[in-house]
Design a protein around this nucleic acid. Sequence first.
RNA 1: GGCGGUGUAGCUCAGUGGUUAGAGCGAGCGGCUCAUAACCGCUAGGUCGGGGGUUCAAAUCCCUUCACCGCCA
Length: 646
Amino acid sequence: MGSFYISTPIYYVNDLPHIGHIYTTVVADVVSRYRRFIGDDVFFLTGTDEHCQSIMKAAEKLGIEPREQADRVVSRYHEIWKTLDITHDDFVRTTQPRHRQAVEAIVARIEASGDFYVDKHEGWYCSSCESFYTEKELLPGNRCPTHETDCEWQSEENVFFRLSKYQDRLLELYAGDPPFVVPESRANEVRSFVEGGLKDISVSRAGLPWGIPFPGRDNEVIYVWLDALTNYLTALGLGSDDTSKLERYWHDDGIRINMIGKDILRFHAIWWPAFLMSAGLPVPSTVAIHGWWLRDNKKVSKTVGNIVRPDALIERFGPDVLRYYLLRDMVFGQDAGFSDEAFVDRYNSDLANDLGNTVSRLVKLTRSIFDGKTPPESCNNNPIIAAAATAVSQYHEGMQSFEYSKALAALWKLLSEVNQYLVAREPWKTVKTEGPSEGVSRVLWNSLEGVRIVTTALAPVMPSTAARILEAIGAGAVPMERAALEWGRLPLDQPLPELEPFFPRVDRKAFLSGDEIDEPAPPKQKAKPSRQPAAEESDMITIDKFFETKLRIATIKSAERIENTDKLLKLTVDVGEDEDRTLVAGIAESYEADALVGRQVAVVANLKPAKLRGVESQGMVLAASVDGKPVLLSPDNPVPNGTPVK
RNA sequence: GGCGGUGUAGCUCAGUGGUUAGAGCGAGCGGCUCAUAACCGCUAGGUCGGGGGUUCAAAUCCCUUCACCGCCA
């Protein structure tokens, strides 16, 4: 039994949980559950980063203490992790006293190595990134290239960390095997960055009331990244009297994974190991980098306004389906597109047709033939045994090398082989001539055993589903030992309860258009409390639904009447894209073409183009409709073209 | 501008020198009827981004070019 440590990043509390947070946490949870299953001693950590300036500003706005604002957001994280069946062992908040202890401990250790010195630090600072930019990096108007918000010029005396000193040791670390950074493409990125030369970094900030005071430096707090990264050891007791967990989980023999998104690669792959080296502590064994879930091929971000919060999908399908989709549809390390279409297609083909239907056909057939029990005869010589062995070995390989999509595909291959086997043997036919014979028993037992192995292996990804299916096929509770994936464990003559359907097929069209009626009973999550009555939802849409409409501000560059029409104007507008768009608007009765030029209006930017009077309209202008007469909507003050409206 | 990556069937992607380039999904046809209009079988004719080269042989190596992405400047 090895020790296995895995962490998610700590999430900024200036933002509610979205698909990015959910993905990392779900993956870490799946891995944790898998590791417990194969017998590792697991420690799974998540938490929140609360010393960012934005939280302070948000609190000021609301007239409350930063801690109170943090509490509000943190409760949302706790809620969603509960909803998604996340089994973290600890939840760190950087505002906790134990975290301050840990940070002070690591600072003392780095100090002892002589890696701190004092120097002057100045530059353009973005308080959202908590980071300095050079003039070249800034957008026009000294705005942050990430957040597009104003940066401030800061000049102060700071404590610096001798990052440059660790350049060679870091390169050595990256050359090690197994790789320190996965996937390889990210490792290359980091290596070439470090090869380009490392500059020392400033690790204290003056004049910030919100943060951990830098020991021995009045009026300075510890730079938020040194603060935040240390969280990974806070929960293990760094700086406290009890360091038993540190010894148990953070030693050179165990596996220590920091799982993160690609946006915080450098901090984790360069700074963090350098801090640890300086502090004389082991570095993580792997920093695992995943990609982003994209919507409309764009990064999901608050600024762009295309945040995915899959609350509606969880509500409709339960947490397991989302967990499965996230693991199956993203190749770990690469970006993937998130869409309701892909989600429902995956649901129908994998969960309804393959898993749900296979369980259904087997249980119903077996019940009818063997009097409501599992088959009385087992079998140790059949094609499913080899197929299962292959699937299980590929499953383990995938689960241990960040290839979750592959691991699941291997299980589904076995499911497919069970179905092929069934059709080849046709037990429903044999039983008509032979009755409940030994042959029929073996065929059904083999098939059920195949499903049992698939389901057992699936438990880390879909915990409640696995429990329900194993019960439904007479296999009992979810086993917590690796050997449960060996052939031959399905008990004979066990009572098979009447089946409640798993994953009823979803009408794709109805689901996507939102016209879904309450027909096929949605899969029930037994353990979950009852859901809100549908009536309450009838008139309301979720925020996701709203964000499907991309509203943007545009400037009208030209306008002309379309001949032989009373109402139509052809507008050319700048929506902040490379090319102008043509819109046809039915506003000629209220507006003169010439008077519109230069005016800013709100438009729907993702409307399917339509031809009106032979002119293709690539969007729609928003107007209030007063007795059928349009009154255009315009921003209160001039704003950049393409600014999202929300 | 530098470094790196990607570009393969409608979609998502495997495939790093060698028979007719593969899988899943979707589509079409057929079969079956135990099952959730499911399942099983067959079919899909893709200049493997373009051009050039090396080789007996290239999606797979080299050069060049285009497009997109990432990191850096």
